[in-house]
Simulated assay, not measured.
Amino acid sequence: MTEWSGDMQGTGRYAEVNGVNLYYETRGTGSPLILLHGGLGSGEMFGPILPTLAERHQVIAVDLQGHGRTADIDRPLEPEFMADDVAALIDHLGLDRPDVVGYSLGGGVALRVAARYPSKIGRIVAASAYIRSDAVYPEIRGQQGQMNAAAAEFMQGTPMYELYQRVAPRPEDFPRLLDKIGASMAKDFDLTEEISGLQVPTLIVAGDADMAPPGHFVEIFALLDGGQRDGGWMGENRPKGGHALAILPGCTHYNLFLSPLFAAATLAFLDERQG
C-alpha cells in the first residue's frame, strides 16, 4: 500500500472562507501554485513530489472540506462548493492568477474552478479527473456505490484511514466523511458543456492504466480542440487555447500523484507558457 503522508515542511495556516476553516500549507517561492489532493486524502499525499514543485513555485497545498486538517461543515461534499472555496481562498490570500493543480477529486475541483472563475487563475492541471460519471470502469462504479460509513471498519490500516486519524481535527468523523463522499460519487454528472467552453489553458493528465480508459482523457482533449490536426513544425496548429494532454506510462489512479512524471509534466506545462 502507498504511504499517504510526507513531511511537507511548509507553513500551515487556516483561512475562514464560505464557512469553512480551510487549512493550507505554503512551501517554496516563485509564482503561486494551488495544489489540490484526491478524495480521502490531504495535501500530504504529494509529499514525494512537493520539493520538485516548490523549487520553481510557491506551492499552496490545500486540505479541502472535510479532508486532512480541514474539519467538515454542514454542507454537502460537492466539487462545486470546493471550487467556490478555492476561489475564495485566492481572494483571501490576494493571489494574482495562481495556477491550480489537482489530482482526482482535486482535479475535478480544478476543472470547476476554471469553468466558474476563469479570471481568477492562470493555468490548470487536472490529473486523473473524469468529466462524466459513466466514464469509469463498471467495476469501479460499483465500488463507489458501496462507499459509506459502514466501510470505515474495513478501511482501518489503509493509507486514507491512517492519514485521517493522524491529522484530522475530529478523527471520529471518518465514517461521516465516507458517507458524504459516497453520496457525492453516487450522483450522475456530465461536465462536457463546461469543459468545451474553458477559457483557461488546461493540461489533462492521466495514467495509462487509470480509473477511466485512456480514450476518455483523449475525448476531454478533443473538447479542448486537441487531436484535431497536425500541430505544425512550430506548434502553430496546436489547440487554440494552449491546452495539452499527457498520458503517463506505468501509472495507475493510485500512484500517479506520487510520480516524478506527474511533477515533470506539470512543471513543463506551467512554466513553458506556450499557446
Rank of each mutant, 00 (worst) to 15 (best):
A129F: 10
L89W: 10
P214A: 04
L35T: 01
P260H: 09
F81V: 14
L50I: 10
P213S: 12
G30E: 02
I49S: 02
P239K: 09
T202L: 00
T29Y: 02
T158Y: 08
K120F: 13
P249Y: 00
S196P: 01
P98W: 07
R123H: 14
E153R: 13
R229D: 08
V59M: 07
P138F: 02
D179Q: 06
G102L: 05
R116G: 11
H67Q: 09
L267H: 07
R69Q: 06
A127G: 15
Q143K: 08
E139R: 08
L77S: 09
R97S: 11
L270N: 12
D179C: 00
V62L: 03
R27P: 06
N237H: 09
M155H: 13
A126T: 15
M1T: 15
G122R: 04
S128Q: 12
G235D: 01
E272G: 09
G47F: 00
Q228S: 06
G102E: 04
G102C: 10
A87P: 07
M185A: 11
A186I: 03
S42N: 05
E44W: 04
G68N: 10
V100K: 02
G122F: 09
D7T: 13
F46M: 00
L198F: 01
P213I: 07
L50H: 09
L178A: 03
I73E: 14
G231I: 12
Y254Q: 13
P159I: 14
Y161C: 05
G68T: 13
S42A: 10
L50G: 06
G108W: 11
V86R: 04
D72N: 14
I49H: 00
P159N: 08
D134T: 15
L22K: 00
L77H: 14
Q58G: 13
D225M: 05
M234V: 13
G250R: 00
R69Y: 11
P260R: 04
W233I: 09
L256I: 15
V59R: 04
A152V: 08
E55A: 14
D96S: 06
A150H: 07
D99T: 01
D91P: 01
A264T: 08
A246K: 11
E25V: 07
K240E: 10
M147E: 06
A265W: 07
L40R: 02
G275K: 10
R176C: 12
L77F: 15
D225H: 11
D271K: 12
L77D: 12
